[in-house]
């Protein structure tokens, strides 16, 4: 009984610490660059396949997949960062990320070129994001983690996958600018 309670409290304390800055990250590569996501946001990693395209959508919304009966939108991160749509290769994966949106938790799939590993990056090893030069929007970056003398871009999931912003972009893409029908 005590054990269970102790376990419970420990879990609480880790997740509390996670609020400030998670210490474990999933690293993946995208267009030759290495990025990291807080591990607590990652639900699972699946093989790329069977993405149903949604018409009239901006490029970065690749479509939707069937995740065991639930329909999950898939975001092309590379396109979201302003680059080209990622080419699908043998190692291409979809990382399922859980984010908090206004209407509760939502799952989103993120296409990455390859998943690398789960890393522990101490808080001291994380530098603030550069104001420019990273080639992606500064507010997408939570920090720059130093791993083996290289920088890993730690993404700010809430910003990168902000449902409100994506929905707005989707709406603009879908509307073709003819808001008169509203």
């Amino acid at each position: 009984m005590n054990q269970v309670v102790a376990n419970g409290t420990r879990q609480v304390s880790t997740s509390k610490g996670a609020d400030d800055s998670p210490t474990q990250y999933l690293t993946f590569s995208l267009g030759g660059e290495v990025f990291a996501l807080g591990i607590l946001n990652v639900k699972e990693i699946i093989e790329f396949g069977n993405v149903t395209e949604i018409p009239m959508m901006p490029v970065f919304i690749r479509g939707v997949i069937n995740l065991r009966g639930a329909v999950v939108p898939v975001i092309d991160l590379s396109a979201r960062f302003g680059g080209n749509a990622s080419a699908v290769s043998r190692r291409t994966c979809i990382v399922i990320v859980e984010i908090d949106s206004e209407d509760g938790k939502q799952d989103l799939g993120v296409i990455v070129d390859a998943v690398n590993e789960v890393l522990e990056i101490p808080r001291a090893e994380i530098e603030p994001p550069p104001s420019f030069g990273a080639k992606i929007r500064a507010d997408f970056i939570q920090g720059m983690g130093k791993v083996d003398g290289r920088f890993v871009i730690i993404l700010n999931v809430e910003r990168v996958l902000s449902t409100a912003e994506i929905a707005m972009l989707a709406r603009m893409g879908g509307d073709d600018g003819n808001t008169a029908t509203e």
Partner: peptide, 19 residues
């Protein structure tokens, strides 16, 4: 009918999805 989620809320012409 599976809801498409908030992202696709405003897509015109698509009412939902199914598997």
């Amino acid at each position: 009918i599976k809801p498409l989620g908030t992202i696709f809320h405003h897509v015109k012409g698509i009412g939902g999805s199914t598997i």
